[in-house]
Design a binder for these strands. Structure first.
Length: 336
DNA sequence: AAATGCGCCAACCGCAATGGA
DNA sequence: GTCCATTGCGGTTGGCGCATT
């Protein structure tokens, strides 16, 4: 299957062409033209199939081939033509004299694609790549729709604090201010959030690049949640994105240190700049760099199996996960 | 110096289109 | 209309050479 019929007739060479083979093929075609490709190898004295000869001629031996690196003009033209024609390499090649479709295709796959991505352009669509921020804007629109339960009195005050979003630019997250969206569970009617959390428990993959869930550990003796966003007055710098914890230094309402987990703090260094901004801090005789999730994109959604404060864990969802699971909820419910 | 990883690109493979018997 | 050889195209592979460990 697949191999050209002429290849079965005799044992034929494959792989790279030797200079001797090139010479035979070049000599033959120069004198007689290629005619019927299937007869070329026999007449030229080559142990190759006609298809292989044709390819060698077109891609390498043809006298009108332009060799060497692509010029800037050629590069621009390829990008332009690819935007219009897609992967129609042979059609693109007709507009670049001396270049073969194979050559252009290789150049595209090994070089131009990367170049475009570096410029923030999607090489398939030739449109700007969708950034996290853009994605979150889309999600934000979705979540302002009626399917979302906005923050209400159903949610316990302390849990509320853990999920507060500030809409004030350039500020830290403030508990109980400008709460955007919080989810609560109900013992009778599952909310969208409950369904999402349930799905996350059963599905291991996600469309987003960040992990899906994060645990909140309840600290009973302090009646406080580890990893929660503190009050402004505490001047504590901590933030989440997905389950990545930016800075775990945390002080409770009595100004006592609850958690000091700098190991996890390392994670924030890999976060893209459009998500975080960094600030010098100097508190508790400790100086360092702190990260803040920019308020515009700092919208997180909490789901818990109950709304009780004593629940040991609660889940934090990445916005992209919310979108992904929301859309799949619809599909799943259609299937049921 | 040897081993390993990685990018590039020539060549191959499979399939669709074409054309002639 | 059907079959089959041939051609053309685009995706994929594998080997070479260079860089890094």
């Amino acid at each position: 299957m697949g191999r050209h019929s002429c290849c079965y007739k005799q044992k034929l060479r494959k792989g790279l062409w030797s200079p001797d083979e090139d010479e035979k093929l070049l000599n033959y075609i120069t004198r007689h033209g290629h005619g019927c490709w299937s007869s070329v190898p026999k007449l030229a004295g080559l142990q190759r199939c006609g298809k292989s000869c044709r390819l060698r001629w077109i891609n390498y031996l043809r006298p009108d081939l332009k060799r060497g690196a692509f010029s800037q003009d050629e590069e621009s033209l390829i990008i332009e033509l690819h935007a219009a024609l897609g992967n129609r390499w042979s059609q693109i090649a007709t507009r670049l004299p001396g270049r073969t479709d194979n050559e252009i295709k290789n150049f595209w796959n090994s070089c131009l694609k990367k170049k475009l991505r570096r410029k923030g352009i999607d090489p398939t669509t030739h449109k700007p790549l969708i950034t996290d921020l853009q994605t979150l804007n889309v999600i934000n629109q979705k979540l302002t729709s009626s399917e979302v339960i906005k923050s209400t009195g159903l949610i316990n005050n302390l849990l509320d604090q853990s999920m507060v979003v500030s809409s004030q630019p350039g500020t830290w997250w403030y508990p109980n201010q400008n709460a955007a969206f919080c989810f609560s569970s109900s013992t009778t009617t599952p909310t969208v959030s409950d369904q999402i959390v349930s799905l996350i428990s059963s599905v291991s993959t996600s469309a987003s690049t960040t992990p899906m869930t994060s645990n909140f550990s309840y600290v009973p003796e302090l009646n406080y949640y580890n990893n929660t966003v503190p009050s402004q007055s505490n001047s504590i710098y901590s933030a989440f994105f997905g389950n990545r914890y930016t800075e775990a230094s945390q002080i409770n309402n009595n100004n006592n240190l609850v958690v000091d987990d700098h190991a996890h703090g390392q994670d924030m260094k890999s976060w893209p700049s459009e998500i975080l901004h960094y600030t010098e801090h100097n508190q508790s005789s400790e100086t360092g760099l702190e990260a803040e999730v920019k308020p515009d994109i700092a919208k997180y959604y909490l789901g818990s199996s109950t709304s009780s404060l004593n629940e040991s864990t609660a889940r934090l969802l990445h916005d992209a996960d919310v979108e992904w699971y929301s859309s799949n909820l619809q599909k799943l419910s259609n299937m049921c």
